[in-house]
Design a protein around this nucleic acid. Structure first.
Lengths: 194, 194
DNA sequence: CCTAATGGAAAGTAAATACTTACATTCAGG
DNA sequence: CCTGAATGTAAGTATTTACTTTCCATTAGG
């Protein structure tokens, strides 16, 4: 039961930092603001993390880019699989929304996270591409450029996510269920055999 | 023929500023760096723009969010129209890529540009939605939620653009022609009657 | 060649900001 | 009630950075 208060304080500080980083970026966020937002003394921030850089190190460390397991739930039914994939994708984006927002704002400072995002995109693309190729072999979908098609699928979901991330509800109004349902329906009909 | 040198210098400075803003954001970009990047003395920057804020005012002023005329080129042929629309959209995004990148990095500082982008998105969405509704009336496409469908279309292109903007060629490999061609083909088949 | 417009060099100012030091206070657990 | 861990207060330091001032150099056009 020791150090409980310490951990709470640390969390308050990292949480406040994340909020401010998303709004103003690294350079635009001062340690004083962080302390105010967290409701602690500025000195407390330095006591816990050493320096400003230390806060972001802590944030990066606790952020893991989970690669959701799509592979294992494949049923080789286009609608089921793609719907599942869409849900997992959006959920995954959303789980990492803070880090994505921060890393895209300050790619030089959060270069590691930035690289991880790119890697993640390519991994996901590969999975989807191979799924399309397999479905093509099985004769379930028509002849098409699987790689480009995977990129188009990803773009749609990334675009939806980025709209929401940057503009809240001011740009798009469809909720994510409608978005998934409709996009999958159109997409499936688009790549089906007849 | 007067003031020619002055204008050249101003352009060098705004150009350098744009480059740095895209990389580091407003707070992360110092006037000294701007001067270095522009190849002029730091003082020259202040002579021309008064203060740092003045540079971004100048940048914002010269940036116009053109709303490309899609309306007038409609031919009520799905493939032709959507391909045209896709090209115009990506061209438009690309024309404004600097301002988009900057405004998304510093939405608080470039709030006006940020608002304009949102407005632009909604305008574009409306045009596309009404096009779908009209095509539906004409019986060229099937019954569907035109608004959501417009958002999906926009999301795809926005996503592609944002991938390229943030990750260059490290994420997606399809060039924009392939992307447009394939996405339109799939999309059209998806929303067509049979 | 003269002049006015433009840009540069160097030094400096004032404010903001990351970070420190010394000391006082709170507060939970034994 | 005592103790020690955790936090707060207050004052200060060093550096960065936007911006200024003064003086000097270049250059293009008449």
């Amino acid at each position: 039961m020791i150090n409980m208060k310490k951990d709470e304080t640390k969390k308050k500080i990292t949480k406040a930092t994340i909020k401010l980083l998303k709004e103003k970026g690294y350079k635009g966020t001062t340690t004083r603001e962080i302390a105010e937002q967290a409701g602690v003394n500025e000195l407390t921030v330095f006591r816990h993390f050493g320096n400003k850089e230390g806060i972001i190190q802590a944030i990066v460390k606790t952020t893991s880019f989970s690669l959701e397991v799509f592979d294992k739930s494949i049923e080789w039914e286009l609608e089921k699989d793609l719907t599942n994939f869409g849900y997992l994708l959006l959920k995954d984006f959303d789980n990492n929304r803070d880090m994505i927002s921060i890393a895209l704002k300050d790619p030089l400072i959060f270069s590691q996270a930035h690289e991880e995002i790119i890697k993640k995109i390519n991994d996901t693309k590969k999975i989807l591409k191979e799924y399309f190729e397999e479905m093509q072999k099985k004769g379930y979908i028509k002849e098409l450029d699987c790689c480009t098609q995977a990129e188009i699928f990803l773009s749609t979901y990334w675009g939806y996510f980025m709209y929401k991330l940057n503009f809240g509800d001011k740009a798009l109004h469809a909720d994510y269920q409608d978005m998934i349902k409709n996009s999958i329906k159109t997409f499936i009909k688009g790549i089906s055999l007849h």
